[in-house]
Protein backbone atom coordinates (compact mmCIF):
# COMPACT_ATOMS: atom_id res chain seq x y z
CA UNK A 1 0.00 0.00 0.00
CA UNK A 2 1.39 3.33 -0.98
CA UNK A 3 1.39 6.51 1.02
CA UNK A 4 -1.41 8.03 -1.02
CA UNK A 5 -3.57 4.95 -0.56
CA UNK A 6 -2.96 5.03 3.18
CA UNK A 7 -3.93 8.67 3.28
CA UNK A 8 -7.19 7.96 1.47
CA UNK A 9 -8.05 5.00 3.66
CA UNK A 10 -7.12 6.70 6.91
CA UNK A 11 -9.11 9.80 6.10
CA UNK A 12 -12.05 7.72 5.06
CA UNK A 13 -11.79 5.71 8.27
CA UNK A 14 -11.55 8.91 10.30
CA UNK A 15 -14.62 10.20 8.48
CA UNK A 16 -13.23 13.62 7.69
CA UNK A 17 -13.30 15.52 4.46
CA UNK A 18 -10.32 16.73 2.48
CA UNK A 19 -11.29 20.28 3.42
CA UNK A 20 -11.38 19.45 7.14
CA UNK A 21 -8.05 17.69 6.95
CA UNK A 22 -6.56 20.57 5.00
CA UNK A 23 -7.80 22.95 7.66
CA UNK A 24 -6.19 20.89 10.42
CA UNK A 25 -2.90 20.76 8.57
CA UNK A 26 -2.95 24.39 7.52
CA UNK A 27 -2.82 23.60 3.81
CA UNK A 28 -5.20 24.00 0.89
CA UNK A 29 -7.74 21.34 -0.06
CA UNK A 30 -5.98 21.10 -3.41
CA UNK A 31 -2.78 20.12 -1.62
CA UNK A 32 -4.58 17.23 0.08
CA UNK A 33 -6.09 16.23 -3.27
CA UNK A 34 -2.66 16.21 -4.85
CA UNK A 35 -1.25 14.08 -2.03
CA UNK A 36 -4.07 11.60 -2.37
CA UNK A 37 -3.76 11.45 -6.15
CA UNK A 38 -0.04 10.88 -5.84
CA UNK A 39 0.89 14.02 -7.75
CA UNK A 40 2.85 15.36 -4.78
CA UNK A 41 4.08 14.08 -1.45
CA UNK A 42 3.54 15.81 1.88
CA UNK A 43 6.53 17.36 3.58
CA UNK A 44 7.98 15.66 6.66
CA UNK A 45 6.21 18.16 8.94
CA UNK A 46 2.88 17.36 7.37
CA UNK A 47 3.57 13.62 7.54
CA UNK A 48 4.23 13.96 11.25
CA UNK A 49 1.02 15.89 11.66
CA UNK A 50 -0.88 13.28 9.65
CA UNK A 51 0.53 10.47 11.79
CA UNK A 52 -0.60 12.35 14.87
CA UNK A 53 -4.09 13.06 13.50
CA UNK A 54 -4.64 9.43 12.47
CA UNK A 55 -2.83 8.05 15.49
CA UNK A 56 -0.46 5.90 13.46
CA UNK A 57 3.32 5.72 13.48
CA UNK A 58 5.33 7.86 11.11
CA UNK A 59 7.32 4.76 10.08
CA UNK A 60 4.21 2.92 9.06
CA UNK A 61 2.80 5.91 7.22
CA UNK A 62 5.99 6.43 5.25
CA UNK A 63 6.74 2.81 4.46
CA UNK A 64 5.23 1.47 1.24
CA UNK A 65 5.86 -2.15 2.20
CA UNK A 66 4.76 -2.01 5.81
CA UNK A 67 2.14 -4.74 5.84
CA UNK A 68 2.45 -5.72 9.48
CA UNK A 69 -0.43 -6.77 11.66
CA UNK A 70 -1.08 -3.37 13.12
CA UNK A 71 -1.32 -1.99 9.60
CA UNK A 72 -3.91 -4.56 8.62
CA UNK A 73 -5.84 -3.82 11.74
CA UNK A 74 -5.93 -0.20 10.87
CA UNK A 75 -6.56 -0.58 7.21
CA UNK A 76 -8.42 -3.85 6.65
CA UNK A 77 -11.97 -2.75 7.43
CA UNK A 78 -11.97 -0.14 4.75
CA UNK A 79 -9.07 -1.16 2.55
CA UNK A 80 -10.95 -2.64 -0.38
CA UNK A 81 -13.58 0.00 -0.38
CA UNK A 82 -11.13 2.85 0.05
CA UNK A 83 -8.70 1.66 -2.56
CA UNK A 84 -11.35 0.94 -5.14
CA UNK A 85 -12.99 4.26 -4.43
CA UNK A 86 -9.71 6.03 -4.94
CA UNK A 87 -9.08 4.15 -8.17
CA UNK A 88 -12.58 4.80 -9.43
CA UNK A 89 -12.30 8.46 -8.52
CA UNK A 90 -9.01 8.76 -10.38
CA UNK A 91 -10.44 7.02 -13.41
CA UNK A 92 -13.48 9.25 -13.37
CA UNK A 93 -11.31 12.32 -13.16
CA UNK A 94 -9.28 11.07 -16.10
CA UNK A 95 -12.43 10.40 -18.10
CA UNK A 96 -13.78 13.86 -17.32
CA UNK A 97 -10.45 15.40 -18.29
CA UNK A 98 -10.45 13.56 -21.63
CA UNK A 99 -14.06 14.51 -22.24
CA UNK A 100 -13.29 18.18 -21.60
CA UNK A 101 -10.25 18.04 -23.89
CA UNK A 102 -12.30 16.33 -26.61
CA UNK A 103 -15.02 18.94 -26.23
CA UNK A 104 -12.56 21.83 -26.46
CA UNK A 105 -10.88 20.22 -29.47
CA UNK A 106 -14.24 19.74 -31.16
CA UNK A 107 -15.26 23.33 -30.57
CA UNK A 108 -11.88 24.57 -31.80
CA UNK A 109 -12.11 22.51 -34.97
CA UNK A 110 -15.66 23.65 -35.64
CA UNK A 111 -14.61 27.27 -35.06
CA UNK A 112 -11.74 26.86 -37.53
CA UNK A 113 -14.05 25.29 -40.10
CA UNK A 114 -16.48 28.16 -39.67
CA UNK A 115 -13.64 30.65 -40.10
CA UNK A 116 -12.50 28.81 -43.22
CA UNK A 117 -15.95 28.78 -44.77
CA UNK A 118 -17.17 32.28 -44.00
CA UNK A 119 -16.38 35.08 -46.41
CA UNK A 120 -13.78 37.50 -45.14
CA UNK A 121 -14.91 40.98 -44.14
CA UNK A 122 -13.19 42.66 -47.03
CA UNK A 123 -14.73 40.30 -49.53
CA UNK A 124 -18.18 40.64 -50.93
CA UNK A 125 -20.58 38.10 -52.27
CA UNK A 126 -20.48 37.68 -56.04
CA UNK A 127 -22.55 40.16 -58.03
CA UNK A 128 -24.72 38.51 -60.64
CA UNK A 129 -24.84 39.83 -64.22
CA UNK A 130 -28.58 40.45 -63.85
CA UNK A 131 -27.83 42.83 -61.00
CA UNK A 132 -25.49 44.85 -63.20
CA UNK A 133 -26.07 47.43 -65.89
CA UNK A 134 -25.96 45.88 -69.36
CA UNK A 135 -25.22 47.67 -72.58
CA UNK A 136 -24.25 46.52 -76.06
CA UNK A 137 -21.07 48.36 -76.95
CA UNK A 138 -18.81 48.70 -79.92
CA UNK A 139 -15.65 47.11 -78.66
CA UNK A 140 -12.65 49.15 -79.70
CA UNK A 141 -9.76 47.37 -81.35
CA UNK A 142 -8.21 45.63 -78.39
CA UNK A 143 -4.88 45.30 -80.13
CA UNK A 144 -4.61 49.07 -80.54
CA UNK A 145 -6.63 50.53 -77.68
CA UNK A 146 -6.48 47.67 -75.19
CA UNK A 147 -4.19 47.49 -72.19
CA UNK A 148 -2.10 44.69 -70.78
CA UNK A 149 -2.18 43.32 -67.28
CA UNK A 150 0.90 42.73 -65.24
CA UNK A 151 0.15 39.12 -64.37
CA UNK A 152 1.21 37.61 -61.07
CA UNK A 153 -0.24 34.12 -61.07
Amino acid sequence: MTLREKMIVLRDKAGISQMALAHQLGVSRQAVTRWESGDTTPSMDKLKALAKIYDVSLDWLCSDTADGKSLEEVVAPVEDNGTSNATTSAENKKKIRYAVIALVAGVAILACMWLAMRPKNNEMSGVQFEDMENEIVDIPDQGVNGFDFEWEG
Binding site: P140, G146, F149, G153
Partner: peptide, 30 residues
Protein backbone atom coordinates in the same frame (compact mmCIF):
# COMPACT_ATOMS: atom_id res chain seq x y z
CA UNK B 1 -3.34 27.48 -42.35
CA UNK B 2 -5.63 25.33 -44.48
CA UNK B 3 -8.35 27.92 -44.09
CA UNK B 4 -5.95 30.59 -45.28
CA UNK B 5 -5.12 28.68 -48.45
CA UNK B 6 -8.75 28.11 -49.41
CA UNK B 7 -9.27 31.78 -50.21
CA UNK B 8 -6.03 32.00 -52.17
CA UNK B 9 -7.18 29.61 -54.88
CA UNK B 10 -7.10 32.09 -57.74
CA UNK B 11 -5.95 31.17 -61.21
CA UNK B 12 -4.39 34.53 -61.93
CA UNK B 13 -4.10 38.05 -60.66
CA UNK B 14 -3.25 40.94 -62.93
CA UNK B 15 -2.37 44.52 -62.09
CA UNK B 16 -3.20 47.45 -64.32
CA UNK B 17 -2.39 51.14 -64.37
CA UNK B 18 -4.12 52.92 -67.20
CA UNK B 19 -5.33 56.30 -68.31
CA UNK B 20 -8.80 56.41 -69.77
CA UNK B 21 -9.59 59.47 -71.81
CA UNK B 22 -12.93 61.27 -71.61
CA UNK B 23 -15.75 59.13 -72.98
CA UNK B 24 -13.45 56.22 -73.75
CA UNK B 25 -14.23 52.53 -73.23
CA UNK B 26 -10.88 50.88 -72.61
CA UNK B 27 -10.81 47.08 -72.80
CA UNK B 28 -8.04 44.72 -71.80
CA UNK B 29 -6.11 43.24 -74.70
CA UNK B 30 -6.92 39.71 -73.62
Amino acid sequence: CFAGTVDAAWRASGKFDITVTAGELKPAKT
